[in-house]
């Protein structure tokens, strides 16, 4: 896979062409904006979190029958996707009133909706992303009736899948934004799914776990993004590397000798030698198998083992 020219640069992403027809690379940036670009900043590690979270969520949705643009995670902050002809309509699903909706309808923040709301917004920076009725969409020719129905239906299905998914991970999915596009005449879910495009609240404490921390200067922004990824990445399968570290041959191992003495005194005379080391497991979500060995070896050389006194052995498991 070869990364070619930059096709598009948005507020949080760059999209590059590749040497594969119809496939593009989304590179996620650490830059953050809010209030139509009036507030700007950097959230360190955000690009990495958003790419990896999108990878996990899109794969989860794919497994449950949602057609998405996702192909695979390429690096810690890059995703390979199908190229979509994007429909300039943002679909918002709301389970709770928050932000602009609470303000517009005069509802107290965090009022639960009787049933999930689906709203359409015009993706236009000049106009400030105004809300659209279905008539507006038709009038502007942004999408046809059938596509509108399909997008709304998929959005609700995504909500049905993700609400319990986040609930299990201690997070309330208050609202989220989706974007769709067309590929070979079919509708695909595109864009990303990350704390940038949804509202998440901690189930226990009610704490804000999304971009509102940046919008409202609540602090601990980086930590929160990392925590969300940690929660959803938990049981995500990936490559596991086991590192066995043992005292080098010829190096005295006081703990091993003490255990040997104890074993002998219990009558285990057959034991000739005991060496006590460390066992470390590393989970490497989204890492390419062929790179794992080299990377883990480097981790051992630089930090995990001290080559002066320790030997190490690596086992990789997919």
């Amino acid at each position: 896979m070869e990364k070619r020219e930059l096709i598009y640069e948005g507020k949080a992403k760059r999209v590059y062409a590749t040497d594969q027809i119809g496939q593009v690379i989304h590179e996620f940036k650490d830059e953050a904006t809010a209030f139509d670009g009036k507030k700007r900043g950097i959230i360190e590690g955000k690009g990495r979190v958003n790419a990896q979270m999108s990878d996990i969520i899109f794969r989860y949705l794919e497994r449950r029958g949602i057609r998405t643009h996702h192909i695979k995670l390429l690096s810690e902050n890059e995703i390979l996707t199908w190229w979509l002809e994007m429909i300039p309509v943002e679909i918002i699903v709301r389970n709770y009133a928050a932000g602009s909706l609470a303000k517009r309808l005069g509802l107290p923040e965090r009022t639960e909706m009787r049933s999930p709301l689906v709203e359409f917004y015009y993706k236009s920076d000049e106009l400030g992303d105004p809300m659209l009725s279905r008539e507006h969409v038709r009038e502007l020719g942004l999408a046809d009736e059938e596509q509108m129905d399909e997008m709304a239906a998929i959005a609700l299905k995504v909500n049905d899948i993700l609400r319990p998914y986040f609930e299990e991970r201690g997070l309330v999915l208050a609202d989220f934004k989706l974007e769709f596009g067309l590929r070979e005449g079919r509708l695909y879910l595109g864009d990303e799914f990350s704390p940038d495009v949804c509202r998440l609240w901690d189930t226990e404490t009610g704490e804000v776990m999304d971009k509102d921390r940046f919008r409202q200067d609540l602090g601990k922004v980086e930590e929160t993004y990392a925590e969300v990824l940690r929660r959803i990445g938990e049981e995500e399968t990936g490559i596991t590397a086991s590192v066995f570290i043992s005292p080098k041959r010829g190096i005295l191992d006081p703990a091993g000798q003490a255990a040997l003495g104890a074993l002998k005194s219990l009558g285990f005379d057959e034991v000739g030698e005991v060496r006590i080391g460390k066992y470390i497991t590393l989970r490497l979500p989204g890492m390419e198998a062929e790179r794992v060995m080299d990377r883990v070896r480097e981790m051992c050389e630089r930090l995990l083992a001290n080559p002066i006194i320790e030997d190490y052995r690596i086992e990789i498991e997919e």
């Binding site: 703990a255 000798q257 001290n306 006194i309």
Partner: peptide, 16 residues
């Protein structure tokens, strides 16, 4: 020692 500014390494005391 770990930083390599001095040679060698430390093991646990033999007495544990």
């Amino acid at each position: 020692l770990e930083a390599g500014l001095l040679p060698g390494a430390m093991l646990r005391n033999t007495s544990l």
